[in-house]
């Protein structure tokens, strides 16, 4: 029996559950809006607008839990990256996922008290949580209140540019989600990481 760590305190689990539900709602309704079609509607356009607006606003408030929580608690430390040797560490982890993992090698950055995320997890969480999601809800709010957007920028309308940025970030988060879900199945057993997101405890692997 390996060691157990209490990785996910209640506030993280609450935040993360809400976050996951809202993100899924946003992705599905967002795709439905972007690819809205007269013949094959994924969701009725008006309903999709309603869902998307509601979930976007809720996500923004939920994000504040994450942001403030990480400022106030130790958990924020997990999101600090050292630049030195970053590339080597990322490469090592990537090599492990692509090769060593199958050979039954030991993980190069085993999780433990000092380290909750491996370097790849860390960089993807930082990009998504501190760049993509903030950009998403900022541009989202801007589209909700377009009268505050710059009228023109580089010859394009501000609304248009905000929308493109919004779509690009939404896509990035969707890709992240696929990888995130998959990598989460690479715990001790395929389901163990999901269990830890429910009860908070994770076993070392």
């Amino acid at each position: 029996m390996s060691e157990k760590y209490y990785f996910y305190p209640r506030w993280i689990r609450v935040w993360h559950t809400l976050n996951a539900i809202l993100c899924l709602m946003l992705i599905v309704s967002g795709i439905s809006l972007q690819y809205s079609d007269t013949d094959a509607p994924v969701i009725n356009f008006q309903a999709a607008i309603g869902i998307h607006n509601f979930a976007g606003v809720a996500l923004t408030f939920n994000y504040m839990i994450f942001f403030v929580g990480n400022l106030l608690t130790e958990n924020g430390r997990n999101y600090l990256m050292r630049r030195k040797g970053l590339r080597d560490r990322l490469w090592k982890q990537l090599r492990y996922y692509a090769y060593g993992f199958f050979r039954g090698e030991k993980a190069p950055f085993p999780v433990g008290k000092e380290r909750k995320f491996n370097p790849l997890q860390q960089i993807s969480y930082v990009i998504v949580m501190y760049a993509a999601i903030p950009l998403l809800f900022l541009t989202g709010w801007a589209l909700l209140f377009p009268e505050f957007i710059l009228k023109k920028f580089l010859g394009f309308s501000g609304i248009f540019l905000s929308a493109q940025l919004h779509i690009a970030m939404g896509f990035l988060v969707s890709v992240f989600l696929v990888i995130h879900l998959y990598v989460s199945t690479m715990g001790r057993t395929p389901l163990s990481n999901f269990r830890s997101m429910i009860d908070g405890w994770q076993e070392a692997h």
């Binding site: 990480n70 999101y79 600090l80 050292r82 930082v126 501190y130 940025l165 690009a168």
Partner: peptide, 17 residues
């Protein structure tokens, strides 16, 4: 807290855009 991370990462994201 995020002394090294996000700044240049955001730039990195903006390049493809």
């Amino acid at each position: 807290k995020l002394k090294t991370g996000p700044g240049y990462l955001i730039l990195l994201l903006l390049v493809p855009l």
